[in-house]
Design a protein around this nucleic acid. Structure first.
Lengths: 204, 204
DNA sequence: CCCCGAAGTAAACAACTGTTTACTTCGCGT
DNA sequence: ACGCGAAGTAAACAGTTGTTTACTTCGGGG
């Protein structure tokens, strides 16, 4: 027999997993599923692929998340929580660097771009879709609010266009690997994005 | 029995179909499939759904397009052909109204936004994916070329960001129905998009 | 008019999907 | 050390997928 059979399958994380730990298993599933759902979409991703990549049995998805749909909803909730954290204290000055970091930056726990991409994926379930839609809308409202004191109705439209540009860039980078956008660094993007923010939300 | 059994199923087009015509059947399938693939993605769309909506038997998809994959490739080719037509004679002045029309306008033959959205959908087939990627890149190159005579390397990056914004707006409109962006008219969008084009590609 | 090939159809096919079941194996508190 | 409940597993399940088959029906040229 192999000398170390306990971690025979692919590890679901960078760190080695304890042999039996429901919490770690759940997190491994969440991490793998978030990436796959974000990059390939809901329908193209099978539960067996997720389980295999996480080094976990398929049945545990149903056990811990009720269903594939439940797993997706959990991924989405985690993404929303993560995104809300640094989008509530936004201002017109920090917006451009924030966007650049969200698109091309990396942080402590992992890679961010996946998180943003998940908002564009649908499971088909109407209720879960509404979570997604409501959150996108609240983000655009926050961006519009940061733009200026005046509540000009077109400001919200312009904020949504800026949001669309952010999501589009993420899509072209991660899902389509369009060069040179896909290889652009955080600093490469800062200039154009600053112009973007200024043109859409800056005071004329 | 019903008084008119020949067009019993849902019509695949606005016009009534002749009872037996391979060309019309193929076009009906193409039209329905393009819309479904664009709006819901490749994996979420069933060949039976496409056939039913087109009022056609499922087996005819395999007959006329070899496979679901072949049907998708045919949709993509048609979309590319359509998009190339009015993107090769683009200039910096007409770019903003062109984009606005592509996103919110309607034309002679049907609705345009679907066409643009199809470029974001993947069937998983690597070869077909390359068609998609190559075309997106060629579009961004054409936009960069229209921007100015100088071949500054950052110009291509900025053109791709503009392309990303265009695709993102289409996505937020058609696939997510984010208001007020989803309800914005061609004229509503012209102002912000003009600012966008100017900020990214205009000479400073 | 009539018939032959094209156009269309219903049913069956195997592969794959998400989910459940019955079972085994481990780790931890006593 | 031991056993009991939690954690994990393999196999089977029913439904759906894309595709193929054998068949019927139409319609236009001779």
């Amino acid at each position: 027999m192999p000398e170390n059979a306990t971690v025979a399958a692919a590890d679901g994380a960078t760190s080695a997993r304890r042999r039996r730990d429901a919490t770690q298993t759940r997190q491994a599933l969440l991490r793998v599923a978030s990436r796959r759902f974000a990059r390939d979409g809901y329908a193209s991703t099978t539960v067996r692929e997720i389980a295999d990549e996480a080094g976990v049995n398929v049945a545990l998805i149903s056990r811990y998340f009720t269903s594939k749909e439940g797993l997706f909803e959990a991924c989405l909730t985690a993404a929303v929580t993560d995104l809300r954290r640094d989008s509530d204290e936004t201002s017109l000055e920090t917006m451009a660097p924030d966007i650049a970091r969200r698109i091309a930056g990396v942080t402590h726990d992992g890679r961010l771009p996946d998180t943003l991409l998940l908002l564009l994926r649908s499971s088909g379930d109407e209720q879960v879709d509404n979570v997604r839609r409501d959150f996108l809308r609240s983000i655009s409202e926050r961006m519009a609010a940061a733009a200026g004191g005046d509540t000009h109705p077109e400001t919200l439209l312009r904020a949504q266009i800026l949001l669309a540009a952010t999501l589009g860039m993420t899509l072209l980078r991660l899902s389509m690997s369009i060069q040179p956008l896909a290889a652009a660094t955080e600093e490469d993007l800062l200039g154009p994005i600053s112009d973007l923010v200024d043109a859409l939300l800056g005071t004329p």
